[in-house]
Design a protein around this nucleic acid. Structure first.
Length: 1191
RNA sequence: GGGCGCGUAGCUCAGUUGGUUAGAGCGCAGCCCUGAUAAGGCUGAGGUCCCAAGUUCGAGUCUUGGCGCGCCCA
């Protein structure tokens, strides 16, 4: 007996029960245990940050991350799924600042770094509960207990190990970088963070004159006209740049009575004239290169006084001034401005690159230096104009403009609306570009290696490989690693306070072993004060900063840590090894691994998979599968690839070229992995947008909280919507309706079939476990071979065509799904599953209902139907398990566990260990089963085609009925079918019953003379004839169109080919080279599709009408049975009373039929005593119906 | 400004190496079925496949150029 199914299914509620069951019975753990020794399928969890609430977009990532591991596990792999959390970085600091009501670095330091860091550590788990709940609720199986976190000591030390490796190989160096600087916060923002904060703003846009000097150094009457939207950068102007190949014009113009001359790009003269409403006269033209080396007076004199006369010797021996000179560059554009660019190297990346170039040009004498009159807090220093000092740069724009105007240097001023970045967390703070000293990793040296590794990765969609990701690698620049912040992995470099020489440290123990080490007591004291302090903080600021030791480079000097922490993207990219705390230890079995003696297992290892970090790492690298959204291209996808390539690729013999980096040490050990690319397959997900097509945003409320979705529709509905509606890389709009729809479209349809089975199997006492005596493989999975040991199980070959067909479809589907899923195509797989469930529901069950209703419980046909549907459902449960794990489990528990007599979930577990069990119990969970891969011996391709044809014919017949407004209850005399291709006609003739029944017709004829109803049309088979005939093809098509179809067909029949004569050429078209189409002649109630035409005979005889009436009566009685609450099996007495002669006759003629259909023991033509009749109307005749249940 | 992607029915999306009649679901309209029933099914209307040019016997599909949108980067 199966557990009866409640009237209306509540998926969300059911899912909670399933979730509970998995937890209580440790199904995930068992699924791993069961695959002990099996080949690994390696999955990496890209660490999310738990300091924000998860939204539907995260559901997609978590769903797809679950799908493939679940699938692979069922396919026989062992798939560890170690969870992880990204915990470092600015967002965490910003959250804490908000909490503390502070903003800037000064304020953080005033607050106290120690307390700040402790708060950061606490804050990273703020939303962990929500994340874990979401993870569990959506059915993402992942080991949360042994999750790695990037702030854990073992993780940090593993990162240190890798950085020391890079440092020792000269791959880590210090340089300058123009960064997007958040002055109020005192920090640089990563490009990703900058991208988050672009906003449209109106900035002042000024056209400023730079008066040119002549060779003797005297001021001329001609000025360069330059344009800028950041007036505050003008005091640090160092050069003006033009493009060499472009034409510039010398213009003369009148202004306030004075005439002046200006130089601008010729292409922009009209635009500027229109903008400024000034009349220009072109005096002369010249090329940009003619302006090379011309000196000018800068708009501000702060530095001019100091350096205005400084010169140096360049390579050709000339003396040129170090600043305020015209340069030639390529990056000048002509869409805005004047074609002459103001260069302030301190405040622009391109500008700074220009300065570096200039510095290289000088061979002796003075060289250009970087002019920067702005302090890191964004305020002018004493080097700036007097009225600007101590003021925020953007606030000075107005005064600077006024000053320029007063001095006659301002030519024009307006507002300019453009996109400008603001701090993404402090939205009122504009960012500025600003020079900072920074640590870099020499990734650009490894470009080719990274590209080679990239080539090994299977990207989905494919275009990422050479597109977004490949292009990004090709333009690789060195990774700016350091951050001048607090909450991050400290850069493990200690610097000699005397000599400036540096060395990298790979672990805390190594540090503490240094000679003369001191400062460890700061941590000890903190720990003593608060024993609850997590030990992980020992390797963080400020404690680690306190640790110093004797310098090996200068006697008496101390080594102190540099202040920076690192980019948290490095943490995430180091996760393949850092999640295990791996620090270069060799793994005995790993070939080619070098290194020091193994270190003890670091803390936070938990009960991971292996016994040592090295074993774990070697066993779990590289990943077979990862998946994240497209925004991770430059994030986690890149950081993993870059780090793996530098660390595990071939030695590059890279040498430092930076002057200030320390001496080279012997490189520490590295693993030369055969696959230095860290992942083999990567599904790049599209972004999920809000319902309005905008980015999902809390304030816009354009999406629903995940928990609400789960409560309303369930996790399976959401998962199915993700997997089955589009390929995963499509960016989709959050579409609640579509999530809702996935319930009736798929889940409910499957559920109804399952529910149908359970209802009737219980009525008939169908018990699949009865008589089953299986042993050996496949028993626990309830494989076909196991089921076949049951007494009542007939070999598939002996069953009806319908049974054979659905089992063929089932196995065909399994094979196709496996093929798709192995190619990481969940969308294709879902389509196949959908089609199968549709076939099962709308054809197999529909066509089998009679057998399930048959009175004889032991009829072989009936048992065949049960066995067939049972096997189909059990297999489908396994098939859909990775996709919709909850409903699959519910089905399995009832069909396999309860149904096999074990009496429920818990009991089935006990049965497994009980030696008395007649056969080993079924798998405790569907997720412990092997995935069905399809049995090709059960697949019958021809049957599949034929059944498809039957379905088409039935559909066309209904269409024809529809067109003639003849309802299906009205029987018709015959239906005629005309086939374009008669291949399957013989088979169809033998299976006329199905069609007759579907269409409620008395006879099915295949038309002898199709020309009565249809016309044949012969068209070329373009695919075959295209390459063969080329330009002749359209003529052949035309010619065929002009012939009579019947004649052409006769030709083929008689000669095996059609002879075509065109342009004096004769061609023979074979049967394959043409396609015969048919279309119905006008005036027929018919329908056609795919080479089939169905014609219905619409003539009605009195007998047919009577039968139709009888069916109506049955219909009414059935309704009454339901209304009176009859049980499915109740017998009734029926009385039918009518004055209408026709109706009475129809009832009399069909009395047996009516009785049979309605389970009536008697049908009489008089009232039944004591029963209230129900009055009905049929074809305008009154009918009184009396129904009484027979007790 | 550059790179990448997208643009197909009212909406959300498919569309396999180019093959001549472009599909699904929802929505809308009409109908059917009735012991899976607070389900199910059928049919219909609805398309300039963003625009233009090119390649080809043949283009939703390939190429180029526009237009629009998104993402990433300047």
């Amino acid at each position: 007996m199966f557990n009866p199914i409640e009237g209306s299914v509540n998926f969300p509620q059911q899912e909670l029960a399933v979730s509970q069951f998995w937890k209580e019975h440790h199904i995930y753990e068992t699924s791993l245990e069961q695959r002990k020794g099996a080949p690994s399928f390696v999955f990496y969890e890209g660490p999310p940050t738990a300091n924000g609430m998860p939204h539907p977009g995260h559901c997609l990532t978590r769903a797809i991350k679950d799908l493939f591991p679940r699938y692979r596990t069922m396919r026989g792999y062992r798939c560890e799924r170690k969870a992880g959390w990204d915990t470092h970085g600015l967002p965490v600091e910003v959250e804490v600042c908000k909490e503390l009501g502070i903003h800037s670095k000064e304020e953080i330091e005033a607050h106290g770094i120690e307390d700040f860091i402790q708060k950061c550590q606490q804050s990273v788990w703020r939303y962990m509960r929500e994340w874990e709940r979401l993870t569990e609720r959506i059915g993402f199986w992942v080991d949360l207990k042994n999750a790695y976190a990037t702030y854990h000591r073992s993780f940090v030390e593993s990162v240190w190990w890798s950085l020391k490796n890079l440092f020792d190989r000269g791959l880590l160096y210090q340089g300058h970088k123009i960064v997007w600087w958040w002055a109020q916060g005192g920090t640089a923002l990563s490009s990703g963070e900058v991208g988050l904060g672009y906003r449209e703003v109106a900035d002042p846009s000024v056209y400023v004159k730079f008066p040119l000097l002549d060779d003797a150094g005297n001021v001329t009457d001609t000025s360069l006209l330059v344009w800028t939207t950041t007036p505050w950068t003008l005091p640090s102007n160092q050069f003006a740049a033009v493009r060499p190949d472009l034409e510039y014009s010398v213009l003369s113009t009148e202004h306030e009575g004075k005439s002046e001359k200006l130089i601008v790009a010729t292409a922009l003269v009209d635009t500027i004239a229109a903008k400024t409403k000034r009349a220009f006269v072109v005096e002369s033209t010249l090329h940009g290169r003619d302006l090379w080396g011309r000196r000018y007076i800068p708009p501000f004199h702060c530095y001019y006084k100091l350096f205005g006369s400084k010169t140096g010797k360049i390579s050709d021996g000339r003396d040129v001034s170090t600043a305020w000179r015209v340069l030639i560059t390529g990056f000048v554009t002509f869409d805005t401005g004047t074609g002459i660019v103001h260069i302030a190297p301190a405040y622009g990346e391109d500008d700074y690159a220009e300065l570096l170039d200039q510095q290289r040009v000088f061979e002796s004498g003075e060289i250009p230096r970087l002019l920067n009159p702005v302090a890191p807090n964004g305020k002018f220093t004493d080097e700036g104009p007097e009225y600007c000092r101590g003021r925020w740069v953007k606030d000075c724009d107005r005064d600077i403009i006024r000053d320029l105007k007063q001095r006659g240097l301002l030519f024009h001023q307006e507002q300019y609306v453009h996109e400008y970045p603001f701090c993404w967390r402090a939205e009122q703070d504009p960012l500025i570009q600003y020079p900072r000293r920074s640590w870099f990793i020499r990734t650009s040296q490894f470009k080719d290696e990274m590209l080679a590794n990239n080539a090994q990765i299977n990207w989905l969609p494919e275009h990422v490989k050479t597109g977004r990701f490949g292009k990004f690698l090709e333009t690789n620049v060195d990774w700016a690693l350091s951050r001048e912040r607090y909450w991050g992995t400290p850069l493990p470099i200690w610097k000699c306070e005397e000599t400036g020489k540096m060395e990298a440290i790979a672990s805390y123990d190594e540090l503490m072993a240094k000679p003369g080490v001191a400062g460890g007591e700061v941590w000890e004291a903190a720990k003593k004060k608060n024993p609850e302090l997590p030990d992980d903080l020992q390797v963080h600021k400020p404690y680690i900063d306190a640790v110093t030791y004797d310098s090996p480079y200068a006697k008496g000097a101390r080594m102190r840590r540099v202040p920076e922490v690192i980019d948290c993207w490095y943490d995430s990219g180091a996760m393949p090894f850092a999640q295990w705390g791996y620090r270069g230890e060799p793994e005995a079995s790993a070939p080619g691994a070098l290194g020091k003696s193994p270190l003890p297992n670091p803390p936070h290892q938990g009960e991971g998979i292996g016994s040592t970090a090295a074993q774990n790492f070697h066993a779990q690298f590289p990943a077979d599968f990862i998946s994240e959204a497209i925004d991770q291209t430059r994030g986690w996808f890149y950081s993993q690839l870059a780090i793996s390539t530098l660390l595990f690729g071939k030695e590059q013999g890279a040498r430092s070229t930076e002057k200030d980096s320390s001496e080279l040490h012997a490189p520490s050990s590295t693993l030369h992995a055969p696959f230095p690319h860290p992942f083999r397959n990567c599904i790049v997900l599209g972004h999920m947008l809000g319902e309005d097509g905008q980015k999902m945003s809390k304030s816009k409320r354009n999406y629903r909280e995940p928990t609400e979705i789960f409560d309303r529709y369930g996790a399976d509905a959401l998962r199915w919507y993700f997997f089955a509606n589009q390929p995963p890389w499509t960016s989709i709009r959050y579409n609640e309706q579509a999530i809702k729809d996935s319930v009736p479209e798929f889940l409910l349809r499957l559920w109804n079939v399952y529910s149908f089975f359970v209802i009737y199997a219980n009525i008939d006492g169908f018990d699949p476990s009865k008589g089953v005596r299986g042993q050996g493989s496949g028993v626990r999975d309830l494989s076909s071979s196991f089921l076949a040991t049951a007494k009542s199980y007939r070999p598939v070959g002996e069953r009806s065509e319908l049974d054979r067909w659905i089992l063929s479809e089932l196995n065909r589907t399994c094979a196709a799904v496996v093929e798709r899923m192995d190619a990481y195509d969940n969308f294709g797989a879902c389509q196949r599953i959908s089609e199968f469930v549709d076939a099962l529901s709308n054809w197999y069950v529909r066509r089998s209902r009679d057998r399930f209703w048959a009175a004889d419980k032991r009829a072989v046909e009936k048992l065949d139907a049960y066995w067939t549907l049972y096997e189909a459902l059990v297999t489908t449960a396994k098939l859909v398990a990775p996709f919709v794990p909850f409903v699959a489990e519910t089905m399995w528990q009832n069909l396999a566990c309860a149904g096999l007599g074990a009496g429920g979930w818990r009991l089935s577990v006990n049965a497994a260990s009980s030696p008395q069990a007649p056969f080993p119990s079924p798998q405790e969970s569907v997720h412990l089963c092997d995935y069905p891969t399809g049995d090709s011996t059960v697949v019958d391709q021809a049957l599949s085609e034929r059944m498809n044809l039957v379905r088409i014919i039935a559909s066309l017949g209904r269409n024809a009925r529809n067109a003639a407004t003849l309802k299906v209850r009205q029987p018709l005399a015959k239906v005629e079918v005309i086939l374009a291709d008669t291949k399957h006609q013989g088979w169809l003739e033998q299976h006329a019953d199905v069609i007759k029944e579907e269409l409620n017709v008395k006879a099915l004829d295949f038309c002898d003379d199709p020309s009565l109803y249809v016309e044949h049309e012969v068209v070329p088979n373009f695919k075959l004839l295209g390459p063969k005939l080329g330009k002749l093809l359209p003529k052949v098509k035309q010619w065929l169109g002009q012939q009579t179809g019947a004649e052409l067909l006769a030709n083929i029949r008689d000669n095996g080919q059609i002879d075509v004569t065109l342009d004096g050429q004769t061609l023979g078209l074979t049967h394959d080279e043409v396609e015969v189409r048919i279309k119905p002649k006008p005036g027929w109630t018919s329908a056609n599709d795919q080479g089939v035409v169905v014609v219905l005979s619409t003539a009605l005889t009195p007998e047919l009408v009577a039968e139709g009436l009888a069916r109506d009566v049955v219909r009414l009685i059935q309704d009454l049975r339901k209304d009176t609450g009859c049980d499915y099996t109740d017998r009734i007495e029926v009385g039918l009373v009518t004055d209408a002669v026709d109706l009475a006759a129809a009832i009399t003629q069909n009395r047996d039929y009516i009785a049979g259909e309605t389970l009536a023991s008697s049908v009489v033509d008089k009232p039944i005593a004591g029963v209230e009749p129900v009055q009905a109307k049929l074809m305008n005749h009154d009918l009184a119906i009396y129904v009484r249940v027979v007790k």
